Simulated assay, not measured.
Amino acid sequence: MTTELERYAASLLPVFGTPQLVIDHGDGAYVVDTAGRRYLDLVGGIAVNALGHNHPALVEAITKQAGQLVHVSNFFTTPAQIALAERLLRISGAPAGSKVFFCNSGTEAIEAAIKLSRRTGRRGLVAAQGAFHGRTTGALALTAKAAYREPFEPLIPDVTHVPYADVAALRAAVGPETAAIVLEPVQGEAGVVEPADDYLRAAREIASAAGALLIIDEVQTGIGRTGDWFGFQRSGIVPDAITVAKGLGGGVPIGALITFGEHTSGLLTAGQHGTTFGGNPLACAAGLAVLDTIEADGLLEHVGAVGDAFAARVTEAGIPGVRGVRGRGLLRAIVLEEEIAAQAVVTARGQGFLVNAVAPDALRLAPPLVITDAELATFADALPRILEEAA
């Protein structure tokens, strides 16, 4: 009898390798595989499932919208598209004259941001070492990892990568030909690396002095993941644009570029960019349900509280093999003393927990924002056994 994973291997391109599990369904912060085994989902679709699995508000919104209208093309608009754009402008604190462009993913939002930067008349882009901005050829040029980039070079030119969180290096790289600086408030794929509090403020000053755009990639950090609506907000800056995706749809594909202020919002005009499915009413209804629930349930405060409590619990436990906990809110990395993260993923899965080896010595956690302190505590309590077995 052919197994599901054998059928997968026979029918799908192997770009993701072999899946770890075949997931059948989920509820809250848990998923269940096709063999009936239950797991605490600390991956959250890689920071996507903001409301967890099978959340009634999201299910209701999607069901209702599917019964009304799924797609109409961008020759037209819908109430859901307009309402979600207005909500994003409000929660981002965008000034008057700001605008939203809807797409389907974080990578597409970055592509739109690159085109936005080209409309300044300049070509240079400055990004950070350790950055991950996507895998399409434009976004890949900003992504730092050589293994992702090199098989597809030459990519778009005039991209410079500087050490992350190094103000002096950033200042030295930005000049009169720089169109934009593109930064993450917290680098997720690099191992959940958080810069000093003044880094984004320095980036804002450097960009302004050079006449360049400051574009903040909030694809992973946005929509409450760090305990604020967006990761940049803690620094008090006003960027020129941000990119959003992942958690916005709670699992339904959606992305957005938000341009701040009239000048930046006027750079892309009619006919200069587009997408067939962007801003479709189904995805926008999902986005509204996610934002409504985060507000109604006080999830921003919840994320900050449970994330800090978890980090403190792991740190204070003095677990052998743990060097510390990085990150903010519910975007965290458990930093290990040895490079056993890949083995720890396997042992954790065997004990009913899904985690991600974001680096050889780091386990990334990006669970649903609705996860409870008690649920996170079960993982913290299991961590010594997990690491002992992995080692």
Rank of each mutant, 00 (worst) to 15 (best):
R149M: 02
E86S: 13
Q81Y: 06
R149A: 04
K246Y: 02
A382V: 08
R364V: 00
P154K: 11
G224W: 13
A377T: 11
G318C: 09
A80S: 12
E389A: 14
E375Y: 04
H133E: 07
I340D: 05
T63G: 01
V370L: 10
A80G: 03
R385V: 12
V100C: 11
Y199L: 01
A309H: 12
G188Q: 11
E60R: 11
A57C: 02
R349N: 14
G324I: 05
F132V: 06
T78R: 00
P239I: 04
L200N: 03
V370H: 06
A169G: 03
D297Q: 14
G224L: 14
G227R: 15
P368I: 08
A374S: 09
L288N: 06
G327M: 11
D27V: 10
A47M: 01
I371T: 10
G307K: 15
P79H: 10
A141E: 06
I46G: 03
E111M: 04
F132S: 07
L363D: 02
D158W: 01
S235A: 15
L13D: 09
G175V: 06
L42G: 02
A144V: 00
I242R: 03
I23R: 02
S11W: 01
A172E: 01
G352F: 12
L69N: 05
G352Y: 08
S105D: 02
D158Y: 05
A146S: 06
A172K: 02
F75D: 03
A309R: 14
A296H: 04
A131L: 02
L200I: 01
C284D: 12
V252D: 14
R323Q: 13
D228Y: 09
E153T: 10
Q187Y: 00
T293S: 15
A283W: 09
A61I: 01
E108M: 08
F101Q: 10
L125R: 00
L330K: 15
T226N: 07
L387P: 00
Y39D: 07
Q351T: 03
P368G: 15
A357T: 07
G17F: 14
S92H: 08
S235G: 10
V193G: 05
F132C: 05
G44Q: 01
G298Q: 13
A85W: 01
G307Y: 12
F310V: 03
P154L: 09
R201H: 03
K64A: 13
H302C: 06
L282K: 03
D33N: 08
E194P: 01
P185Q: 07
P157T: 06
G236Q: 10
E339F: 00
L213V: 00
A285H: 08
L21M: 04
G304F: 07
G134D: 12
G236R: 04
K99E: 11
